[in-house]
């Protein structure tokens, strides 16, 4: 599926498949197309979806390097490593100076799987910020 097809199919999904959330999708044009998915009510932390030949990547940005309390950075990173496996479907990552959670799916995934990934990633990002907030400014 191309990014555009994923966007179109997400729009057609039933409310059950969207796990009760409304999605607002927008394609960000560029050398590599990105789909921005906003869960209504969670506008501040969108999910970004991008695709390679072999996988679909869903990414949510958490916090920037500058938001971390310098004295807590080591503890924060250890906590992220410890939390990586218990966190369902998503993993912690860093892109440039931004920390993120991401999930990778096979390009053969169904649209329902993609929607489930998006909602789970959004849940995980909120929860991650919540539990890690003591390390943040």
């Amino acid at each position: 599926m191309k990014i555009k097809q994923i966007a179109e199919q997400l729009d057609k999904l039933s409310v059950e498949s969207r796990e009760g959330y409304d999605f607002e999708n927008q394609i960000i044009p560029g050398e590599e197309e990105v789909l921005q998915i906003i869960l209504v009510g969670r506008e501040e932390i969108p999910v970004y979806l991008t695709q390679t030949d072999t996988q679909i990547l869903c990414i949510s940005y958490l916090w920037g390097e500058n938001e971390i309390k310098p004295e807590s950075k080591g503890e924060l990173i250890e906590m992220m490593l410890d939390m990586n496996i218990p966190m369902p479907l998503s993993s912690f990552a860093r892109i440039g100076d931004q920390y993120a959670v991401f999930g990778a799916l096979s390009t053969n995934s169904s649209i329902e799987d993609i929607a489930h990934e998006i909602v789970t990633l959004s849940d995980n990002s909120l929860e991650a910020i919540d539990v890690m907030s003591e390390f943040l400014k």
Binding site: E32, E44, S133
Partner: peptide, 29 residues
Amino acid sequence: SVQKATSAISDSFSNSNSKIMSATESLER
């Protein structure tokens, strides 16, 4: 691909002049 996507995302942020809040502010809202 992730690099290109990331730069597309940050371009879109700066083009739309979205103020990027801190993570804790976003969560609070």
